[in-house]
Design a protein around this nucleic acid. Sequence first.
DNA 1: TTTATATATTCCTTGACAAGAATATACAAG
DNA 2: CTTGTATATTCTTGTCAAGGAATATATAAA
Lengths: 101, 101
Amino acid sequence: MDTATLTALAEPNRLKIVELLRGQPCSVNEVALALKLRQPQVSKHLHTLAQAGLVTMQPVAQQRIYTLKPEPFLRLEDWANSFQQYWTQQLDNLENHLKKG
Amino acid sequence: MDTATLTALAEPNRLKIVELLRGQPCSVNEVALALKLRQPQVSKHLHTLAQAGLVTMQPVAQQRIYTLKPEPFLRLEDWANSFQQYWTQQLDNLENHLKKG
DNA sequence: TTTATATATTCCTTGACAAGAATATACAAG
DNA sequence: CTTGTATATTCTTGTCAAGGAATATATAAA
């Protein structure tokens, strides 16, 4: 797992932005209105998300529409899923311990 | 998703610690040796991870054994998996667009 | 061209946080 | 009880990132 993705998501307002964009792509102003944030901060957060590769932007007239990118989230999903192995292994250890003890 | 978990994981050394503990529970010194970190920093990072609820500690003589806790990782897994819905929906939108256009 | 709308950028201040060094605490062994 | 081992804590310092305010840029509309 890369920490760039995690760092980008760890900021509360950015996480909210991501969850909003999960609903549908949004312009900067739409995000600002929906989350009651100031426009410059939204622009900055979206820039950070773009740098981290979590969103893409396509201009439409004066607006900039931001859209979630799948890849980093799929990687996060894979990483989180890879823990399943550990939990089941730990569970086995516990069971063996109880049987022997 | 709670940002506490993400913040804890976003720090590179803590992420390494988590990935090490995913192999098996470790004492502070074992972590320090494995990752070539200084003992105080490891103690601090483990403390942070414990505060965030990502690990638990059980004392064994002078040693403190740190173990990964399942819950936050399961929640992260659920959250990441919940994006699947969005990707498939976006894919549908794209297909419809191509057919109509 | 001016004016309005949408977004980006810059500067500043402040708070959080990570590392290093030194020290304190806990427990065990002799 | 002293010594050694394992871990935690404190203090300091430097860096980085977020918000606020102001301003710059881009595109559309009149």
